[in-house]
Structure formats: C-alpha cells, structure tokens
Amino acid sequence: MFRGSHIARVDEKGRLKVPAEFKRLLDEKYGATFFITSFDGERAEIFPMQEWEKIEAEMATRTSSPQKAKFLEVTNYYGQVVEMDGQGRLLLPQNLRDKAGLAGDLAVMGLQTRLSAVNDEQQVARLKAAPLTGDDFAALAIPGV
C-alpha cells in the first residue's frame, strides 16, 4: 500500500524520478509497467499496470452509460502506458504535463494502490483552501481519528 508524500523532480525531458520509498514497493510488488492518466487534468495518477487492469476489468462489467463513456474518454485522453527506466524514472504524458503544470518539483503522494503527482505549489494552495474539517472526519467515521 502506498502512503505518505515525497517531493520529486521532473527533468527537462518530462521524466519523473520516483521517490525511493515508493520505488522499493513498486519493484517488490508490481514491476516496471504503468498506466499514467488523470481524472481532472490537474494531476497525474500513476497506476501500476496490475491495479489499472483491475479498473479496466470492473469497467468491462458495466453497461454502457454516459458516465462510463466520460470516464473512458478522460482517462484515455490523458493516459499512456509507460515503462520505468533503469534510473527509476517515468515519462509523464506530454499533454498531461502541459495542462497540469507538471514541471519542476511535484508532490508525489501515496493513495493506497496508486501514486498521484501534482505541482507542489498548487497542492499546498489546494490544501490551504479546503482543509479537512470536523464534518469530513464525521462523514468518514474512521475509528481512532
């Protein structure tokens, strides 16, 4: 399971250096093939291929609907299959880099079965603008929190 956040840099060729803490888990459990996409054009969602294939299998069981069509259109527009290189770098899709401002320092966050990479300055602003509230915690009803 991916958890936590690390700052990572995107180089001039658009390659994201996967933080060592996440790379260890990727190497142990998943291998080098990924589907990188976005749900909103503001961040890169980095799925190990095995995790993305679970989503594809679930989508295949669903009947056609406007929501399914929209999901497939968005994720395929931004998405590409990517192989991690020998230095632990992933090439972020060009159209996603351009639209989401994925250059320089990114916050790479563990979201259980995937990683999410977002412009660090934009993420800090987003967190300040919409902090967790008591209502959020109540809705989640997490024991011990």
Rank of each mutant, 00 (worst) to 15 (best):
F2V: 04
F2H: 09
I7H: 06
I7A: 13
V10R: 03
D11G: 07
K13A: 11
K13I: 05
G14Y: 03
R15Q: 05
K17G: 02
V18P: 00
P19D: 11
P19E: 12
R24M: 08
L25K: 15
D27E: 14
E28T: 07
G31C: 08
G31K: 04
A32P: 00
F34E: 00
D40W: 06
G41Q: 09
R43K: 15
R43V: 01
E45H: 10
E45C: 02
I46T: 03
F47K: 01
Q50N: 09
Q50V: 10
Q50L: 09
W52S: 05
K54M: 11
K54Y: 14
K54F: 10
K54N: 11
K54P: 02
E58F: 13
M59N: 04
A60W: 08
S64E: 13
S64W: 02
K68Y: 03
A69V: 10
K70E: 10
F71H: 06
F71Q: 01
F71M: 13
T75P: 00
T75F: 09
T75N: 10
Y77L: 11
Q80T: 07
Q80C: 06
V82E: 02
E83K: 15
D85H: 09
G88R: 11
R89F: 06
P93D: 03
L96C: 03
K99P: 00
A100R: 07
G104Y: 13
D105P: 00
Q112F: 13
Q112Y: 14
T113Y: 10
R114S: 06
L115E: 02
L115W: 03
V118L: 04
V118H: 01
D120Q: 14
E121F: 07
V124P: 01
R126I: 03
L127I: 09
K128R: 10
A129G: 14
A129R: 12
P131Q: 12
D135Y: 11
D136E: 08
F137A: 14
F137N: 07
A138P: 02
L140H: 06
I142T: 13
G144P: 01
